[in-house]
Write a protein that binds this DNA or RNA. Structure first.
Lengths: 338, 338
DNA sequence: CTGAAAGCGCTAACAC
DNA sequence: GTGTTAGCGCTTTCAG
């Protein structure tokens, strides 16, 4: 038989299918004997509940939707691993959608997941996302949401992030301590909250130490390697070029580093470079990249745990969880001879 | 209203819901006028079909299941990107499950997807998988399957892979051409087909050039960095250590390279190192890693296209597609001074 | 304790 | 053209 159903079992045992249904989901009102028979037969026939029918009936899918910009990025793929890990243990299904850093696609992903009646939503917004009507919609539908890292800054949704301000402050301060005095910042996409926070942290550290900060020292743009290289090129061609850069993430930092290699710029001697995130490459590249580590896997885990709590309690109380970053010092900023 | 249905529209327009259903799915037997009215109202009310009900009714989910060992591995995440890319364009939904390189979990993933009635299945098996009763089951249920890279070698299923034998042969030959004469092989998990094919290709190249191949020169084990380092350590402590290693993948090669750095072994002068796959790190690490590039994204794409063909034609004719690898020469094997 | 019946939202014969 | 009906597989009243 293609797929055996509750009815097949009922027929075989000469019972009504409601009794079978009860037995199968452990309802107390069913005779021990018949229950035993039913379970035995189900086992033997390899019966499995049809989750589609179940979802339709219960109006819940037992699924958590995930919208993420790209999966080929280790930061996000580690977040997804964390999500899967926790969801799997809890018997929840996760539906992953990729926005490809496009807001149009993000909207389409969201519609898809909503249409699908996911029980909850985990998301990191695309670089293009600066208005949030699509997420408003989800909010209106009472779907619990937890944003991860790339958050929607709205009081009614939960967030899991790191303290970007503090992280940026700390690493900038590290550059200063290493003796760099003309520090520039390769920033991310201008409208993103993460970009702004890291910029603020950077700026605060620079100001706290009375260092110069010409407007040209801040280069907005993107998260890619190419952008990092391009931005550094601009910085180096300034009349008074920086002696260090803090990059919004490791990818731009990597791009900057590669640019230095082609241009024979000595890192860390002539130029100090620091990143953010701590991707696997960062310790392999040479010189090793100084960076602020973000606990990506853990971010995925805790976001999912929060979601599971909401789902279990059937109430959604927005909360904000801020995880620790960690300064990882490698060679790309080791200017001073110790 | 929480979720508007076909009935709501029917009631509002004083029609039977079957008419509405017909209009909504473009059935010809419906008056142009009423059709227009229905579509207009649906549009206005922001009606969306409930995919759960649809799937239950049609006994197909419009979903493709994917089982993959891990997502944090760039090779697999690029495959997934390729899959998502094609599936998305075709309006197919993809359900990603991670086996975490565990066969137990792989079995559970498969059961989950089957229970979920996915229309087709894409898979790369775990390192632990050497028997395939779970996939037999899927085959028995007539679910079309395409294996990617880590394949089940069964005549009745489709496969998308690269020519591992030839790739291994080519890169080993490259090592020989660079003047290395005592070449070892850090192999993968012993039972995996990929491992065997690459080993065979390696061995064939060595034999073709009449080079020595002591049994100790082949170290089976895993795909991880740690294993690469460990295996190289053993090789280097041999009475007659190799002057080059071909590693089953870039991760083991990276581990081997790192081991060389800590042990002050000069690469490529004292030891040549070659990998397989071409991960993003491979060009960033120093020295750059010589490797055989596998078109991961494309593998995901073509596997999905095959699947879409089966689904559209409603018939599954197993086929095998072999994609080209490409030798990427970097510094880790540039021994000879040119 | 067990069975009958309604219904989740939709499609697809079958009537009219 | 349109409405009626049955049914996908299951849960959940409501009777008995």
């Amino acid at each position: 038989m293609e797929h055996i159903t509750i009815k097949d079992i009922a027929k075989a045992l000469n019972l009504s299918f409601s009794t079978v249904s009860r037995a199968l989901r452990g309802h107390p009102d069913v005779n021990q004997e018949t229950k035993k028979k039913i379970l035995a037969l189900a086992e033997q026939l390899n019966y499995e509940k049809n989750p589609l029918a179940l979802s339709l009936r219960k109006q819940k899918t037992n699924a958590i939707g995930v919208i993420i910009p790209e999966i080929a990025n280790p930061f996000f793929s580690r977040i997804i691993s964390g999500i899967q890990h926790v969801a799997y243990e809890a018997g929840y299904n996760v539906m992953i959608c990729l926005s490809d850093e496009s807001i149009e696609r993000e909207i389409s992903n969201l519609r898809h997941l909503l249409r699908y009646r996911v029980d909850g939503l985990l998301a990191a917004v695309s670089v293009e996302t600066s208005t949030f009507p699509h997420f408003e919609l989800a909010l209106a539908k009472q779907v619990p949401m937890v944003f991860i890292d790339r958050v929607w800054d709205h009081p009614q949704v939960s967030k899991v992030l790191v303290d970007d301000f503090e992280g940026a402050f700390t690493i900038t301060q590290h550059l200063i301590e290493m003796g760099y005095g003309q520090i520039a910042h390769i920033a991310g996409p201008e409208k993103l909250l993460v970009t702004q926070k890291r910029l603020e942290g950077f700026r605060a550290a620079i100001l706290a130490h009375d260092l110069p900060l010409p407007p040209d020292y801040i280069q907005f743009g993107g998260f890619t390697e190419d952008f990092g290289a391009e931005a550094l090129q601009k910085l180096l061609s300034l009349p008074s070029p920086p002696d260090a850069v803090f990059c919004v993430n490791d990818r731009t930092a990597t791009g900057a580093l590669l640019h230095c290699k082609t241009q024979q710029v000595q890192v860390p001697r002539q130029l100090g470079i620091a990143g953010f995130t701590d991707m696997p490459v960062s310790k392999l590249i040479e010189p090793g990249l100084t960076t602020m580590a973000q606990p990506a896997f853990e971010m995925g885990e805790v976001a999912t745990q929060m979601m599971l709590r909401y789902l279990a309690a059937e109430r959604y109380e927005p909360e904000v969880l801020i995880l620790k970053t960690q300064l990882i010092i490698r060679e790309s900023t080791r200017r001073s001879i110790i």
